[in-house]
């Protein structure tokens, strides 16, 4: 039965680390996103019309902020994952060479 990846990528020793890191970053973003949603709901969202930066209100700044924050977190996540993958792959290849 055809029942595996379209192209096998081999074992990934960093998968546990990446899963934990992903969950932490997901929770961080969830909290910030929930803050945005709740700011819209509490007190009929009046806080959103407060001018906070360069003539822009909180609604625009928070909205842009969420988009930019997603990208920043994504880049940090990728950096940390890539570093861990290299680290563990080097360790594994060294072990393999010594065996």
């Amino acid at each position: 039965m055809l029942h595996g990846p379209a192209r096998s990528s081999g074992p990934d020793p960093a998968s546990g680390y990446k899963t934990r890191l992903g969950v932490v970053m997901f929770i961080i973003y969830c909290v910030v996103y929930a803050g945005f949603v709740m700011t819209n709901v509490v007190n009929e969202g009046r806080a959103m019309q407060t001018i906070v930066f360069a003539g822009l209100n909180l609604a625009v700044v928070y909205g842009f902020g969420l988009i930019i924050f997603a990208l920043v977190l994504a880049l940090i996540y990728n950096h940390l994952c890539t570093r861990k993958e290299r680290e563990l792959n080097v360790t594994r290849s060294e072990k393999g060479a010594g065996a």
């Binding site: 992903g22 969950v23 988009i67 997603a70």
Partner: peptide, 11 residues
């Protein structure tokens, strides 16, 4: 729509 991609990436 954009925030949903965070779920896709991290999880």
């Amino acid at each position: 729509y954009l925030a949903g991609w965070v779920v896709a990436l991290f999880v």
